[in-house]
Lab assay of single mutants.
Amino acid sequence: RLTVMSLQESGLKVNQPASFAIRLNGAKGKIDAKVHSPSGAVEECHVSELEPDKYAVRFIPHENGVHTIDVKFNGSHVVGSPFKVRVGEP
């Protein structure tokens, strides 16, 4: 089962990169992540390998409000996905 680490749920800033990590815990497959902005825009997140069992997911929010992040592994949502994060002040 995958572990999502260091996902900041609030206090993110517009046009500043945000990232979190995913540990695969021995699982093999493909991570896919997309961020949905409050206006409905959908953007791919950048996924990069940090070490053999750990990946970083990076995105840049372009507007204030609550964004939804879909994180999928081999086509299925990971536990807790979709995640909600707040950009800007509430």
Rank of each mutant, 00 (worst) to 15 (best):
E43A: 02
P82W: 01
S10P: 03
A21Q: 14
L7T: 09
G26I: 01
D32F: 01
V71W: 02
V85I: 14
V85C: 15
E51W: 04
R23W: 05
K84F: 06
D32L: 06
N15F: 03
H46I: 02
E51N: 07
A33K: 00
P17I: 07
D53C: 07
A56K: 09
K13G: 04
V35Y: 14
E63W: 09
I69N: 00
A21P: 03
S37Q: 07
P82V: 03
V85S: 15
N74D: 13
G75E: 13
L7R: 03
V4W: 11
N64R: 08
V71E: 00
H46C: 06
H77T: 13
R86F: 10
G40Y: 12
F20W: 08
N74S: 11
H46N: 13
S39F: 09
H46F: 13
V87D: 02
N25E: 02
E49D: 10
S76F: 12
N25P: 04
N25Y: 07
A21G: 10
D32T: 15
I69L: 11
A21D: 08
S39Y: 07
R23P: 01
A21F: 02
V14A: 04
V57K: 00
K54N: 06
E49F: 10
V79P: 11
S19T: 04
F59R: 00
L50A: 11
N64L: 06
G65N: 07
S37W: 09
S81T: 05
I31N: 00
I31C: 11
S6V: 07
V42P: 05
K84A: 09
V42D: 04
L2P: 04
S37Y: 06
D70F: 09
K72H: 12
F20N: 04
S81F: 03
G11L: 09
C45L: 06
C45D: 01
K34L: 08
A41G: 11
S48G: 11
P17K: 14
A27I: 15
F59D: 00
M5Y: 15
E9R: 04
P17L: 04
K72Y: 06
V57L: 03
L2M: 06
E49P: 12
E43I: 15
D32R: 06
H77P: 07
V71Y: 02
D32E: 06
C45Y: 06
D53P: 04
K30I: 15
P61V: 02
L12E: 11
Q16D: 05
G26P: 03
D53S: 11
K30W: 07
L7K: 05
E9D: 12
K30E: 14
F59L: 04
V71A: 09
S81Q: 03
K34H: 15
E9K: 03
H77W: 10
S10T: 06
V42E: 07
A21K: 15
I60C: 14
T3A: 06
G40P: 02
S48L: 09
A56S: 14
G29T: 02
N64S: 10
S76M: 13
S6D: 15
C45W: 02
A33G: 10
N74W: 05
L2E: 01
N64E: 14
F83R: 04
E44G: 09
Y55G: 10
F59P: 00
F73Q: 03
G75A: 12
K30S: 06
Q8T: 13
G29L: 03
A21C: 03
S39I: 04
N25W: 02
A27Y: 01
L7S: 07
G26T: 03
L24V: 06
R58H: 05
I31S: 01
L24Y: 01
K34N: 14
E51S: 07
S37P: 05
K72C: 10
K54R: 05
K34W: 12
V78F: 03
S19C: 02
N25I: 12
Q8H: 08
A56Q: 10
F83I: 15
I31L: 11
N64M: 12
A41D: 10
I69D: 00
I22R: 00
E51D: 06
C45S: 07
P52D: 11
A21L: 14
L2K: 09
P82R: 01
E49W: 09
F73H: 12
M5N: 12
G75P: 00
I22T: 00
A18S: 14
E63S: 10
G88E: 08
E43Y: 05
